[in-house]
Design a protein around this nucleic acid. Structure first.
Lengths: 352, 352
DNA sequence: AGTTATTGCACCATCGATTGTGCAAAAAAG
DNA sequence: CTTTTTTGCACAATCGATGGTGCAATAACT
């Protein structure tokens, strides 16, 4: 606590105080002192002084010298969503446990912004980058490669870097199967009663739509194109699609698959302006898990993607010597309606 | 695109290429060249070369030299929650628009971790820090002060630094009023029918409890202590409190106030293991807004805190010359049940 | 033409830590 | 009591950018 308000102590200050040279101080404080054959007593003296003066390493200086920063980046489409925010939470925990510092940023699904944001991260000499849900993973890849930055794709695959994604096809099959079965409990289901909303022209959407259509065709016999409504990822556009369907049919489809919790927000917007009867008997599947979404006043089957496993796998890949641009699938799990899963929050100490 | 795989270009490389000195290159690239009376032609030449070689400033070097980093920190309790994740989203947008780089980290409501995390941020020479929902704002303040780091508290106030918080008392009054009125529509409400769950020993909880009790006493005549159940902020503890009440009464309170959406997750856990009749007629108020929470199968009044305004105010304070440790209140708004508000996501370009 | 102002830029120290190298002093070996 | 080895540390270059200072060359004045 010595030195309130004064400038931060540096190795030069400690050098003077201890009588040792700056390089000795540096070695002691970064742990390389045994290798440098510094006497134990010297080390202890310096460490005592460092504590007394609240020394902390200037990481910009270290980073400049070593051209590494201890920062690990995570590029997200958005923060404000339970899937990505829980990914951020897991990411942060794992980065910390590796003694590094997480740097989570979002780029709004805008390819140009994605590249720019990554350029900025590179300017800070980040050591590694997780690219989650990027609209243009390969564009980002090129930026990373030019800077020699190790990176992996999460959630949406690229062709040039290793990717770890949810097994969207299998997940979509499970989810479709679940809502079909549930709908059949209420009576026969015609192909026109089962829709899919949301998603756009990306790998995840394609796979999910493929899984949906395969199961639908197998179980209901037909699979008209009109039942696929890829509205993009915006709640507003999704709401519009529900609105359009409703205008045409006077109701919502009996059962439908929603491509993500962001699209599910679009459904909320629709519900907000329509009476309860409109959706009294709908059955919904949502490819994402949200603890409140699971308790809506109609059955909502959800898919929980294992973002923690994806991050773990991502680090394993980055740690490996060779990093071929292979896509790794992580199996998601299906969550029946009215289920409250425990999440990253439960790791918090809040015993009181 | 010249130089794939090669090291990043520096001002020294451009110095050689252009024939100008490194300092001239530096001045051109950081915009101070007019002030330094560099010829326009020289500047253009250097900028052309910089573009061709994909030059980007090494921000660690700049940061070291100028003892600033361009990083602005936001310390959160957790990411995985709509209130904080939307705060992160607003924060990021505002930081970016100021030409800086956001650094969002969470510290799990652990005072020791809060201080440590901030120490780390300081080691990166961050320029400013927003401390949101800190368990020990004053402890963090001391760490910041020692390092000469400008900072503000958001959401939970400290006594030593300026704070911007939600008007918890007024918000709680509005929310309590709303659920009382709604409950009265279904018949008379006894004081024993109105509970509060969640929160702990912090300023926000105190104010909310105070608002709740004041309105309750005024409108129902009494306000027994047993109706206040501060369970901390964990979903698990909150669920236990609902469970305990249920064991004792065979039902949930007719109406109750939940201190935050994290506590509301505790309610979900309870609901998951109890039949629908258990909560057929409950009326809930939740001090936080969540778009799915608003559509649960019973009326949920919510409070939307204006995190965007808080961040804006935070920057205004940090930009001011004097920063007295005053607490600024930001009025939240009440959100009736079944309401889908638009959020930061709507700023995304997703027209497709 | 001679003097003063202005323009245009180069030089160099600096930020704080890292790391290869060299060299005394102390210890071990002969 | 030498010679060799080991121990313990200091020196100095380096990472890339910044900004104060100084000095030519050119331009603008008497």
């Amino acid at each position: 606590m010595t030195g309130i308000g004064k400038k931060k102590a540096t190795i030069y200050d400690l050098s003077i105080l201890s009588g040792a040279s700056p390089s000795t101080v540096s070695a002691v404080l970064n742990g390389s002192w045994r290798k440098r054959r510094i006497k134990e007593a010297t080390a202890q003296l310096i460490q005592k002084l460092a504590n007394e003066h609240g020394y902390t390493t200037n990481l910009q200086a270290r980073g400049l010298r070593s051209s590494r920063s201890g920062l690990v980046g995570l590029l997200l489409p958005v923060h404000d969503n339970r899937y990505f925010s829980s990914m951020a939470q897991s990411f942060e925990a794992q980065v910390r446990s590796r003694g590094q510092c997480p740097l989570v940023v979002s780029a709004c699904r805008d390819p140009e912004e994605e590249r720019q944001v990554v350029e900025t991260l590179i300017s800070y000499s980040i050591d590694e980058l997780f690219i989650a849900g990027a609209t243009d993973p390969d564009g980002v890849h090129k930026v990373c490669e030019k800077a020699g930055l190790k990176h992996v794709n999460i959630d949406l695959p690229g062709t040039l870097a290793p990717s770890i994604i949810s097994d969207n096809y299998e997940g979509a099959r499970m989810l479709t199967q679940a809502i079909v079965e549930r709908a059949l409990e209420d009576g026969p289901l015609s192909p026109d009663d089962l829709y899919l909303f949301g998603g756009r022209n990306d790998h995840a959407s394609h796979e999910r739509i493929r899984g949906f259509r395969d199961v639908k065709r197998a179980s209901l016999g037909a699979d008209p194109d009109v039942c696929i409504q890829p509205t993009g990822y915006s709640p507003a556009m999704t709401a519009r699609a529900f609105e359009a369907f409703y205008e045409g049919h006077g109701k919502l489809p009996r059962a439908f698959f929603v491509n993500s919790s962001i699209n599910l927000e679009g459904l909320m917007r629709f519900l907000a302006v329509h009476p309860h009867e409109t959706f009294a008997d709908i059955i919904v599947g949502c490819y994402d898990y949200d603890p409140f979404g699971s308790f809506l006043p109609f059955p909502v089957f959800m898919i929980r993607q294992d973002s923690e496993a994806m991050i773990t796998k991502g680090f394993a890949i980055l740690d490996a010597d060779r990093r071929p641009p292979i896509t790794h699938l992580v199996r998601p799990t299906i969550v029946p309606p009215r289920t409250a899963l425990i999440g990253p929050l439960d790791a918090l100490k809040d015993i009181e």
